[in-house]
Write a protein that binds this DNA or RNA. Structure first.
Length: 150
DNA sequence: GCCAACGTTGGC
DNA sequence: GCCAACGTTGGC
């Protein structure tokens, strides 16, 4: 089992929105590194749900992988923002999983707090300089440590 | 709204 | 294959 962190802008799709719908196809990832991480996901993998580009960025909830990998349908839809004319149905370029709601944290574990814990957390893609990955791996130890801050 | 970081595109 | 231009992310 692997652990993950997934970013979402709360104005676009918040933890409350995920709670409301229960599960959501994680469409629109158009970064190869993030896609490759998603390809490694298995049903049941825990996900830290992170709010980015907002007043208080941080981990706000827990989700989990609830589907196997399948091609992102938006890449074939010309009207979609995520349309990729170079991708062929017989050889899809972009893949996704469905993300299911588990629970909201009692409070936000802020990016500021995570930075303060960087010694304890060790190497962590989220805290790397200029990091822009929307899907990134978390070790079991990091996952546990982050949730202990709740 | 600004701007640093960095991935992608496209001319050569 | 190089690299300048451009677009996007995301913290502040």
């Amino acid at each position: 089992m692997n652990h993950w962190l997934m970013k979402s802008e709360p104005d676009e799709f918040s933890i409350d929105a995920l709670k409301k719908v229960g599960r959501e196809p994680w469409s629109g990832v158009r970064n190869y590194q993030a896609r490759n991480f998603m390809k490694a996901m298995k049903v049941g993998d825990p996900i830290l749900f992170y709010h980015s580009s907002c007043a208080v960025p941080g981990v706000v909830g827990i989700a989990e992988v609830v589907s196997d990998l399948y091609p992102d349908p938006t890449q074939f839809k010309p009207k979609s923002d995520y349309y990729d004319p170079a991708s062929k149905p017989e050889e899809p370029r972009w893949w996704l999983v469905d993300v299911g709601f588990k629970r909201k944290l009692k409070r936000v574990i802020t990016l500021e707090q995570l930075k303060a814990e960087s010694d304890a957390l060790g190497e962590f893609a989220l805290l790397n300089r200029g990091n822009r990955l929307s899907v990134l791996p978390v070790t079991a130890a990091q996952y546990k440590h982050i949730l202990s801050l709740e």
